[in-house]
Nucleic acid binder design. Structure first.
Lengths: 195, 195
DNA sequence: GGATACACCTACTAGTTGGTAGGTGTATCT
DNA sequence: AGATACACCTACCAACTAGTAGGTGTATCC
């Protein structure tokens, strides 16, 4: 038997991935788990707190771990970056669902950032951290002489994050794993030739 | 006095931009317009049809018109593309709201594409048209010799669309007009150096 | 002048949804 | 053995929300 709280978190994350936070119905999720409302409200004071917990305990560690790899790659920034992009590509392309449901983090940003400060602060923090890690990795590349000193690390970091998010968005619109790969492919080329 | 149907469409588009389609409450919008339910259901059989009408009559023509300019620019593809990017940049940067609310089309894709076939078909069509127009513009550039024959027009078209969408998404997460400009700036550089 | 069509309004409902009050069973601690 | 804390259940509610039934006023056509 898995701990109920964890089961609730994961099941709601899945539901949120499809319906969004507002569209997700705690009633339905609870029903599907064959648990009752009492259990839910024993662990979470309300729906909003559950949403925050999903971000804090599931999304945040997952996304920060992915991008951390860029900075920590033994061979260098470019290699680390290409590995992360390959990971995304593979994660989307082994799974039909991911192509049509998109990136959970991106979905939540688009839906909730303008509606709720609590969500916005949490999501902004994650994106800002990704940006910081990517920027520092690029700066390390510049210092080691592998990348040109003319490269604007902060701008490039932001652009790469945007392009990945965008690739998810486009793949979702076209419901096409191939489209994700095409867009990421161009980014990979660009990164490979980056100086 | 403006025609009621048009007023309903525009007011609901605005509400949808903030709350999403599911989160948008027809009751509230109608109330704010000092119109009653009767008027709404006189023009639209239900909420879903209103949503479709917003896409067909407001979003689709707007977005197709923007990207049409790339193909029709007298000087060439690159110039047309840079103009469109400048337009986006300016449209976001003159308006604080746009930075935090993002791109209405992107929002709707993220929210509704996996949930409703009617929405998905409409949104997919718009993105596919944008892609087609951009690809044809690039191919024209290749044929005229301004762009290299090695350039993969379809991939690049998709990548540019993704990057623009992504720039909107990142700007929304960070609630920062500047972030949009930074990301678009890198894209502009890339396009300028495109061969 | 009567009929028809259009553009709305009022009042209502059925179903849903997040949330609550209060209770039960079980393990642990003293 | 009694008390306390935890994990969960049942039954309920108040608020909301899309949608409906049926009516009113006005312009237009015949």
């Amino acid at each position: 038997m898995k701990p109920t709280r964890e089961v609730l978190l994961k099941a709601h994350l899945k539901a949120m991935h499809l319906h969004g936070f507002q569209g997700m119905r705690t009633d339905k999720v609870i029903q599907s788990l064959e648990i009752t409302k009492g259990a839910f409200y024993h662990y979470f004071p309300d729906k909003l707190s559950l949403g925050y917990a999903i971000v804090d305990e599931l999304l945040k560690p997952q996304y920060l771990n992915i991008w951390k790899k860029v900075e920590q790659h033994p061979q260098g920034v470019k290699e680390g970056l290409l590995e992360v992009l390959a990971y995304f590509s593979q994660s989307v392309c082994t799974n039909d669902e991911r192509a049509s449901l998109g990136c959970p983090l991106n979905n939540l940003i688009q839906e909730m950032a303008p509606l709720d400060e609590g969500f916005h602060n949490r999501l902004q923090f994650i994106v800002a951290e990704e940006r910081r890690m990517l920027r520092q990795a690029l700066q390390k590349g510049i210092q080691s002489g592998r990348l040109s000193a003319h490269l604007e690390a902060d701008d490039v970091a932001l652009f790469i994050l945007a392009s990945v998010q965008g690739a998810f968005a486009i793949a979702k619109a076209l419901k096409s794993k191939g489209a994700f790969d095409q867009a990421i492919g161009v980014l990979v080329n660009w990164v490979s030739q980056m100086k």
